[in-house]
Nucleic acid binder design. Sequence first.
RNA 1: GGGAGUGUAGCUCAGCCGGGAGAGCGUUCGCCUCACACGCGAAAGGUCACGGGUUCGAGCCCCGUCACGCCCACCA
Length: 938
Amino acid sequence: MAKELAKTYDPKGLEDRIYQTWEEKNYFHAEVDRSRKPFTIVIPPPNITGILHLGHAFDNTVQDILIRFKRMQGFNTLWQPGTDHASISTEVRIIQELQKEGIQKEDLGREGFLKRAWEWKEEYGGTIVKQLRKLGSSCDWERERFTMDEGCNRAVTEVFLRMHEKGYIYRGSRIINWCPVCNTSISDAEVEYEEQNGHLWHIKYPLVEEDGSISKTRFLEFATTRPETMLGDTAVAVHPEDERYADLIGKEVFLPFVERRIPVVADEYVDREFGTGVVKITPGHDPNDFEVGKRHHLPEVNIMNDDATINENGAKFAGMERYAARKQIVKELEEMGLLVRVEDYTHNVGTHERCHTTVEPLIKKQWFVKMDDLIKPAAEAVRNGTIKLIPPRLNAMYFNWTDNIRDWCISRQLWWGHRIPAYYCDDCEEVTVAAETPDKCPHCGGTHFTQDPDTLDTWFSSALWPFETLGWPDKTEDLDYFFPTDVLVTGYDIIFFWVIRMIFSSYEQMGTYPFHTVMLHGLIRDSEGRKFSKSLGNGIDPLEVIEQYGADALRLTIITGNSPGNDMRFYFERVENSRNFANKVWNASRFILMNMEKAAEGGEDVRYFLDTKLPEGLEAADHWILSRMNDMVREVTENMEKFELGIAVGKVYDFIWDEFCDWYIEMVKPRLRSADAKDGSQTCAKEDAADAAHTSRPQIPQAESDAQAHHAPSHIAALWTLQTVLITSLKMLHPYMPFVTEEIYQTFVGDAGSAERSRFAESIMISDWPLYDEALCFAEDEREISLIKEAVRGIRNLRSEMNVAPSKKTKVFVVSENEATRSVFEKSRLFFETLSHASESVCQTDKTGIADDAASVVLADAVIYIPLSELVDISAEIERLTKEKERLEKELARSKGMLANEKFLSKAPPEKIAEEKEKQQKYEQTYAQVQERLSALQ
RNA sequence: GGGAGUGUAGCUCAGCCGGGAGAGCGUUCGCCUCACACGCGAAAGGUCACGGGUUCGAGCCCCGUCACGCCCACCA
């Protein structure tokens, strides 16, 4: 029957094989099916330049878990995959590659460059997609899309046209962030501020006197961090209510080098407290000054070329690089006596997040999206709960953005990307926005056009991702069925870049929101809490982790202990622990298979898991584990519905390892063993006897073994329970650890006969998600087994403290006046004895026949005695019991205090009071027993 | 400057509706117990950052303080 499983779980080879089977069986693929409810997730498209890092692994594991969970719950699940063209990083990458060959991108020309870029994309662009498969991602690969494929291109053009038509897209001169190295504008969101040590130069400009002469004695002093921008100054500003300068407002100062007379203006932007309360105004090179300049109708002087060298407006500094110019200007100002002083100054400098070049604010004609109207429904959706952010605390972050939105600069001076569908008439230079080159200029009738050379910000197409991937702008069945999608999973760091833009784009184009829930996860950091970065060299390649420990171990590690929105640190020790867990599950399964085989050798069909009805003859331990399993199913499902994946998987883990493996399997062993003795061959019996001779293992008394044989088949009930609990646990674990669970599941189900087979899913990934079942609640059995567990723990503890060798078996007496308690021990004798290393257990009502110096474990209404006279140190025993007595005294004091408190009695809920009373009673009973023991010993 | 966080065992982190402090790793002790040494059993280890308050009762709620990162803004 069942296949052999290796002794240790080894994911190598196995994962690829299983993944391939899933793909061949087409399990990942979704088709429109009106009879079923869809559940859709669109992947945050990874950059084609990317290789898989732990962030992707995290993001995609979360998505895969949700998808697999929903798939098993019966939803028609679609996980829509694809990749992003990532304009800047791809273009930079290709330029670097060209440089190695000594080629500039201009040498190739636009078309040649794009050809090269596509070749590059075809060759390397698929890497990350292959890597996602290694993780186990159950994406519908047949539907894979690319942000620059034909459909997405149409979508982008369509949206551009529509938004331009409505006036949301406009072209205008604005001060933008310019990256002189990437040679393109970048959006505000792409600017990263870095604290840098710099200087604050205090400079003074001479005043222009009434007669137009330049004063040699009167100056206006101010401070600046960027002295070179003075070449573009068109004013100096003071606060309108600043009395110190009231008389100077409207006058002029003289700007050295460029020899310009510029006005003193009054503007509230100026902070009177800072420095001298005077600010130089450079509208061409500072965003704030740009605003001031607009208010005062100041000229805008651009002093810089695109490569950040000074241009012809910079007088004699023309041609110098910006920092060289700065140095020279400072030097000359000093010689002219206009430099007052220099102080060290730490300030934040805007840099380009991709290359960390200091950005240069420049005035450029760019395309913008007007945001104030578009953003309103996006903000509203989150405010009124139509879209839920998880965790909700990130709402504040979201609103911070929506409330302070600025127009979105969408043009980029790059070649790789969606070219802006705008055409300039060669005759009149007027612009026409159209899907294709117009025939005739609507302004002058001209027939020759030049298309805008710029491309769109990468995020412009990503913003359309949830609907463009489903066929928009066409009206497709897919779009109608799968859209709006359900959950978006991404890191909180791209709420602004992506999430908000998808929300308003979808609302604008589709008239509805793209998803109802956004699950935001944190970042994975290294073991010291640092971000992973190339410069730190602390990168961890997920593929290596998978190679070494398996994808399941990686997935489990990433999810365990994490809650939405929180960062987590990555440790190899934790991966090891996850791997160990996979091995644990593996071996538990191996144990069950082994026992099934043994039973099968005796001619029984033992694939009981195929039968879902509760069989006859289940014992307390079986009921207990089924009941615990049932709770686990409910709690795990609830937590998964709440996106608390870390909590959910923790519960599966604890259940499997602690309750199922460490307790239930151990409880069941003697039952399976006694079955061996019954149907076992002679050799088996002989071996047992031989074993027993030199280890003093507890022997099943002959009479009892016979009794078992006549009894309802206990080992059959155990085998049924083992299989049922295992299969259910595997299902609960499957979204987290898809490979090992599938492999084991296949081992159990794989060769079931065709009749049984039809009742069973052929793969765990399309099997049914377990449901909470009232029929599996066994409160009484849970209480009984708790009692046994408590007793076993006590005995183990005692033996450990007394240094009793595990091989040393002892007689155990359970003394209780309570008949029900005695009966619990009687019923569970078989495994109680094994678990507590007892040679024999005897239940009785009093201490008859028990030595006074026996060691004891005190329970509420029972005392367990272990005669260990030759081993027990009486004083140690007294000490142990005294410690126990003290502990109980403390608990009793607490409990009595509470119950004596009238306010507690009058205000606490009745069930809490009852609970406390019960506890008190138990403490009192136990306490009395301990005291009795102590007095007997002393 | 604004915002939202975090602070719990040596380390990393859980801790739901307020009702006797948990896990993993590490440490110590004992075990190759016929599923698993990637294992089993046991133990030690905590002023739940600090100070107030609310409450019969606070790790959890409220106020304040300190520390640490994060996001946003960008005062020249």
